[in-house]
Nucleic acid binder design. Sequence first.
DNA 1: ACCGCTAACTTATCGGCGTTCACTCACTTC
DNA 2: GAAGTGAGTGAACGCCGATAAGTTAGCGGT
Lengths: 236, 236
Amino acid sequence: MWNGSPRMSETAVRRRSARGKGAELRGELLRAAMDLLTETGEEDAVSLRAVAQRVGVSVPSIYLHFADKQALLDAVCEEVFAALDAQMQAAAREGTDVFDALRLQGTAYVKFAVANPEHYRIVLMRKHDPQTGGEHADFVMASSAFAHFVGSVQECVDAGVLEGDAGTLALQLWAAAHGVAALLVAKPYFPWPPLDDYIEQVVRMAGMGIAASSRLADCDALPLPELIERLNTLRP
Amino acid sequence: MWNGSPRMSETAVRRRSARGKGAELRGELLRAAMDLLTETGEEDAVSLRAVAQRVGVSVPSIYLHFADKQALLDAVCEEVFAALDAQMQAAAREGTDVFDALRLQGTAYVKFAVANPEHYRIVLMRKHDPQTGGEHADFVMASSAFAHFVGSVQECVDAGVLEGDAGTLALQLWAAAHGVAALLVAKPYFPWPPLDDYIEQVVRMAGMGIAASSRLADCDALPLPELIERLNTLRP
DNA sequence: ACCGCTAACTTATCGGCGTTCACTCACTTC
DNA sequence: GAAGTGAGTGAACGCCGATAAGTTAGCGGT
């Protein structure tokens, strides 16, 4: 570029951080990795070499601030997932009642995944090995998003619209939401129904299902005609 | 081994195939890749080098029979997924009615995923790029398993227990089943509830939910007390 | 019996990856 | 100005998927 030889991607040049400010590089690496991930939408594009080049630093320098590549990716996703909690809580506040708030949180969750597919994939669609499994479980369970969601479920239990243990119910609802999210993230080119419709349908299915299934615990023991009759009483 | 020098992993030696029988190698490669995948349970363990060494052949020979690594993995998973349809149909036959058959197919689906986690991950939890996306969509839509499942949903519609377009309903149920499956596959070390319970809960939630949601399309427009009252009519 | 053709397979090599080790640089402190 | 050390590098290792060019071996024709 300035050099006569064309440069394919901007190779930044960086002045070494001041004495106590080694951690500055950590932030720059994080930002670079986040940008790479969102720009390319390809996890593979976030190689340590690419990150290092973008920051204008050598590859081993990354290891001064992150244990390994996974640690860097984890840090990236941690940042992004902090936003998930905010979005879900904001959505919940729009609800007309506690049950509606649950529904809105579900759609917010899935739409977050669709809007941040690579981040979602890295955090929730990768296999975690035994060692990091424990930490990861803690991460999810202790994450504000999940905790707040369990709280919302508990409110529904208190209001009498759901029955049972809030944590157990939340795991079931999470599975449904994760199902749409994961499918949409993994197969974006599949001929899905219009996304908003599909998401809405699955979220409603889960909501109605969790409300109904606790009240019909032995539904499949019922003869089919009776089940249909009962279901029809729901209709307006 | 026979050589005096210890061999860490069995390095097979292979006689070159006869003139017309080049395709024999394809089968051996497939088997080796399948074995590696199931033995290690790690997709990363299935490197072209590992497969080639196990068969006793050089790496580039693989390219005589598979376009690239992905083609090899696809072939592996295609074999395994043929069994999914069989298992789901067998499960469906155990149902006491068409709706119960649906439930059994759901649990069979998830349990298949749990039993073949790496295969499930490769086929359904990987991102597909635009080019292979089309083929993949065809693969899924045309797969016997999905087609048969849509058929079962249609039977439920015909029986009056479900309402709406069978394909649309099937996609929603698929999302719920995929949700549990994907979570269990991706996070095997997460402190889930007992697996059978969890799977059963989600499948029931989806089944009841899809039956109920079409009958309560405007449920969230209802005041909460009225919704609760209606739901309580379901209770035995 | 030999030749040539070509299917089947190999050797050598490329560029990229994550990771490690030994090293240099520049600033602070004495 | 020497010592110490935090910040960052260069070079290398072993792995990966992929490609290009070369070699082997068996069959068909003469």
